[in-house]
Design a protein around this nucleic acid. Structure first.
Lengths: 340, 340
DNA sequence: ACCTGGCACTCGATGCTACCGAGTGCCAGC
DNA sequence: GCTGGCACTCGGTAGCATCGAGTGCCAGGT
């Protein structure tokens, strides 16, 4: 499709432009390895590459800049895999060795890690609760009319929901004693353990009105909460976005996008669904990201697909390096979530 | 300290500058209410105000801009309290009525609410775990060698920590049965319920080696986790920062600060400790925030001081409006965390 | 003592012109 | 089919005149 020399020229332009953010002229390209011809020849080839849509000129008589198609070709055919820099590999390793504590905290830190590794914004979409089963349900009373339902899922996630008895039915209006709480907890544990989070079975009654009302309230809170996308999104390194672009307006748009959790989830999922590993410019499907590129990778927990990680940066991104970072972090994260 | 007319002039300059971001000239000031003199007189007064440090000129023969001292005087003496706009008040009310579910989620959303209300960045520092007592401790097994310690605190916070038995002592290396887990949970619940989170008592032994080892591991994870500042910080509306400044470099610096959780916590705490409600420019104690102002307010849970909320924006901030927003949100948040 | 109209002055912003140079497209020749 | 050469383009920068918002100051009025 592109002969060897044109490919070499395209690569040279992409790499140089990624490096300098300046339009690349033929004089620069001739210095690149794999291009052993004169600048005039390079110019001819560059004109062809422009006609074919791989390059464009910001203005007549300026150097060339890669188009989306140009980046795409680079990513698909020219980017040599590239391993992580040694220090980065080390950073990733020690990060996951030290990682501990709460899942959310770790995912948040992972997004930051991605940001640090790539100098772009790191994104982590938390595990969808879909597949997980309940391991434990417990009611803990906090105050006279306030209690907490704590549910532990098989994937290690913990959910909590506050119950307000005052607002609940008459059966509970004047508070509930410890023994009722214990009874309800036992009942819930017996009935719900092992059931799938997203599909809780109806509860049989115990016979005790107050206990049943309390159980009902707890289950209702679990049911209602799962509807509203508990798709947690963690974004790390937003400040990097401000460093990646020169145009303030672009920074504003991109930050605006990153702030909309729902949009970010959809974005990553869409890209992944289309089987892409990299989405460049309009491939993201979002107009404000026209000057951006997104690298995504899924991760697993216990062998099951769990969530997605990604990196969002400028279209003139260091693809090999960023792809390596995302791949490695995805792998290590999966490992961490599987082996424990 | 400032006679009435000079105060009126200062107020006019501050308000105009907040509105337009342009240096304000004497011709504009004469149109302000409370200034019934000629532009020449205004000029004389403005020269005095400049000498006394309330105003400055970006360049000779340009209008005046408030200095830090000018903003400070405005905030202390000129800013009339100002209530929230009706629509905003409604937004706050309905926000807290709908708020439910997990504490972290609510605090995160609160930071976003602050951002929406003010068009600046909203910040919420989560409740310090210091005072809270343990209400419940439970061990839930997730896999053969992996379990979770779930602790519920009296303030409604839930902590979880993963335990990896494979890495633990020999007593647990080959896994633990359900009955041991139950025994350990019962033991922990009996011994720890009611104790202060930050000061867990030593556990008496049960006599069963494996159970004791498991308990020990659980307590150790709780102990170790509390050291590393579980001061959660939630920042909402970072994109607003990019809209608040024209200088890209400023945006970069401010976003950089907002990304450092530790720095943000320290910042808010410091300002609050100094008894300030508003910190302007260098009063924040952070050089990169020279062009920013920060409004803070504490909030309570169950009558006890719990955390801090704040808004970070440009020094030319709409102080009355932002202060009103922070005050109202702080009050409503406290209420929500107290009444349930 | 204080305010005011008037006036000369300052200086950033704007627009124009000239010029430089990186980079191009094209052509004739090897 | 590649190359050296050359005319051409056009963004960026520098110099210069102009404009106008805004100032400081002063002399005169209340």
């Amino acid at each position: 499709m592109l002969d060897e020399r044109k490919a070499a020229i395209l690569r040279a332009v992409v790499e140089e432009y990624i490096d300098t953010a300046q339009p690349v002229g033929s004089a620069h390209v001739v210095r690149a390895p794999g291009v052993h011809v004169s600048s005039a020849t390079v110019r001819n080839d560059m004109a062809t590459l422009e006609q074919e849509g791989y390059l464009r000129q910001p203005h007549t008589s300026a150097g060339r800049i890669p188009t989306e198609k140009g980046y795409r070709f680079f990513v698909d055919n020219l980017g040599q895999p590239a391993a992580l820099r040694g220090s980065d590999a080390h950073q990733v390793r020690s990060f996951f060795e030290q990682a501990h504590g709460e899942l959310e905290q770790m995912l948040q830190d992972t997004s930051r890690l991605l940001g640090d590794l790539t100098s772009y914004a790191g994104v982590v979409v938390g595990p969808a609760p879909t597949e997980a089963t309940l391991r434990s349900v417990q009611i803990v009373s906090l105050g006279p009319s306030s209690m907490l339902v704590v549910a532990v899922l098989s994937n290690g996630a913990v959910e909590k929901h506050q119950l307000d008895l005052a607002e609940a039915g008459a059966a509970l209006a004047d508070g509930v004693g410890e023994e009722r709480v214990a009874a309800a907890t036992a009942h819930l544990a017996a009935q719900l353990s092992g059931s799938v989070r997203t599909n809780l079975p109806p509860l049989p009654v115990t016979g005790d009105t107050a206990t049943d009302a309390l159980c009902e309230l707890a289950v209702a809170s679990l049911r209602s909460a799962h509807g509203e996308g508990p798709d947690q999104v963690f974004v790390g390194g937003t400040a990097k976005i401000a460093r990646a672009f020169d145009a303030l307006e672009t920074v504003r748009e991109v930050l605006g996008i990153l702030e909309e959790q729902y949009v970010v989830v959809t974005l990553l999922r869409d890209v992944l669904d289309r089987g892409l590993q990299v989405a460049i410019g309009t491939e993201t499907g979002m107009a404000p990201l026209a000057e951006c590129a997104l690298i995504v990778a899924p991760y697993q927990a216990e062998g099951e697909p769990a969530g997605t990680i990604g990196v969002l940066g400028p279209a003139r991104m260091d693809y090999p390096q960023a792809m390596a970072a995302v791949a490695v972090v995805g792998r290590r994260l999966s490992q961490r979530l599987t082996d424990g």
